[in-house]
């Protein structure tokens, strides 16, 4: 147990989210919220499709992929045929089901989750390049967003000892 004593606690996590599926976004949000709840500073950078998580129009309507997702199974564990996943409405139905399962565990919708993170001092940033690419403006983003940054600006916020960058 000596090694344990030599470890210095984590002080800051910088999380980069580049994907917009329910699971990628929630993994990011759970990690960020978990950090601030432990007194660890958290900064999150949303880029590419991850921007959906902080875009007002999309944030509470995220989907999970029902095609090309080998971990996708029917309730009860039976295989989920890819062709079924391709039918209209199936992805929306599966995604709604995932959201309701999370709600049962008291995991909030994306906007409320972001509010919980910022209430604890966490900071949320959008990627400038991805904003330009998707023709998004500041007014399209969730109001609690701390700013639009280049990756260089974000790295500048990731200094200090015992800081980790996590890419989801």
């Amino acid at each position: 147990m000596n090694t344990e004593k030599n470890e210095k606690p984590l002080k800051k996590v910088c999380i980069i989210c580049a994907k917009g599926t329910i699971e990628d976004v929630y993994a990011t949000l759970v990690m960020a919220n978990g950090a601030v709840m432990e007194g660890i500073e958290a900064k999150v950078f949303f880029t590419f499709f991850g921007l959906d998580a902080i875009t007002k129009k999309q944030m509470n309507k995220l989907h999970t992929a029902t095609v090309g997702n080998p971990a996708m199974r029917m309730p009860g564990g039976l295989p989920f045929p890819s062709l079924l996943g391709a039918l209209p409405g199936v992805e929306a139905g599966v995604s709604a089901m995932m959201r309701s399962q999370m709600e049962k565990l008291d995991i909030p919708p994306v906007d409320e989750f972001l509010e919980m993170i910022t209430a604890g001092g966490g900071e949320i940033y959008a990627c400038k390049l991805a904003m330009d690419m998707f023709k998004l403006e500041l007014k399209d983003l969730w109001e609690g967003c701390s700013g639009v940054l280049t990756i260089g600006d974000f790295y500048a916020k990731c200094g200090g000892e015992n800081t980790q960058i996590i890419f989801t």
Binding site: M37, M116, A119, G120
Partner: peptide
């Protein structure tokens, strides 16, 4: 609210 909770119990709400 959650913000106040963090103020009451800093770094460990």
């Amino acid at each position: 609210d959650i913000k106040e909770l963090y103020k009451l119990f800093p770094a460990g709400p």
